[in-house]
Nucleic acid binder design. Structure first.
Lengths: 119, 119
DNA sequence: ACCTCATGTTCGATGTTTCCGAACATAACA
DNA sequence: TGTTATGTTCGGAAACATCGAACATGAGGT
């Protein structure tokens, strides 16, 4: 799917980012892992949803990406059958400076924890 | 209430603070308002739960304070019939530098919004 | 001692969110 | 056209949030 002919992807613009929504988005281990991984391919890298090996079901992943997009943490665009994800670093740094730099190492920790066995 | 003869108040210590738990705690407007207000009386001020004029019921407030305490954002101690709250500034700054300084202005925004009528 | 008030917590009910598997939709490619 | 790859949506179960009502504890007056 992707490319919903009718419904376009909704992204809040920079000055409408809500702090509580961004924090809520970043308060989940899975989403934190996604953010950390996206930060590895900054600034121009984009990753399809499948390329994150996440320990949750496909439908749950879909929900997580939706939360990240609607809170303004990531930007998504459709490319054929894939949905590409990019970190909204500049917008986040402008509105909440330091937050992303705090979150990214924590996301790496989460991923490392998965590697070492569940914790 | 307060002074639970048996059950002591549980507080995670500094090196057991979990980033996701702290972020989840700070991702709620009511709790953000509590944090902002506590920051006004730093470093040694303590405020009883009642002194926050919060737009939610008493039982809900109780729950919010519990979340803040168990995530490690605040420290609570009983004084007679009151439960006094203090911001864990040093621990939070040590583990997640900059986070509190980001959250506090946002908490003030929330309170200001309540003043201007609901938004 | 006793009553009453102030301050919080706990309980039960109701409504919202999250998660999963299953089914579906769209695009790419043979 | 099929077939495969990639995501989304749907329906139900489990977890969480909020409220009012009831409860518990301590302080202070009489």
């Amino acid at each position: 799917m992707a490319s919903r002919t009718a419904t376009a992807l909704v992204h809040p613009d920079r000055d409408h980012l809500r702090f509580t929504a961004v924090l809520a988005a970043l308060s989940d281990p899975v989403r934190l892992a996604i953010v950390a991984r996206l930060s590895d391919v900054e600034p121009d890298g984009e990753l399809a949803c499948t390329t994150f090996a996440l320990p949750v079901s496909k439908s749950t992943q879909s929900g997580h990406f939706k939360v990240l997009r609607e809170s303004g943490v990531i930007r998504q665009r459709d490319d054929g059958t894939r949905r590409l994800n990019r970190l909204r670093r500049d917008d986040l740094d402008a509105r909440f400076p330091g937050l992303l730099d705090l979150a990214i190492p924590q996301g790496r920790e989460v991923v490392a924890g998965w590697g070492r066995g569940s914790s």
